[in-house]
Amino acid sequence: MSLMARDYSFLLFKSVSHALSAEIILKRHEIPFKLIPVPKQISSDCGVCIRFSPVDNERITGALSCAVDIDRVVSAGCDTIFS
């Protein structure tokens, strides 16, 4: 499976501390996701990000709002992933 498959979206965070804080919340909400190294096509940061299915977009942003600072959401099919 390609990490860059068009049907994934990505949540980027300022730091790993923020990403792992989000992980705890998403697990609590039983929303499927995967913690992966930040794809270089998205950012040159050396941390981790959360990859998820776009169908869960609203649930994820709802669960994390006011709880964890999200740096950036890269939506599925976004050009930055494939440029």
């Binding site: 300022k14 730091s15 790993v16 950012s43 040159s44 940061d45 050396c46 941390g47």
Partner: peptide, 8 residues
């Protein structure tokens, strides 16, 4: 120094 974040 290095923090693992904002490495760029």
């Amino acid at each position: 120094g290095g923090t693992g974040s904002r490495s760029e």
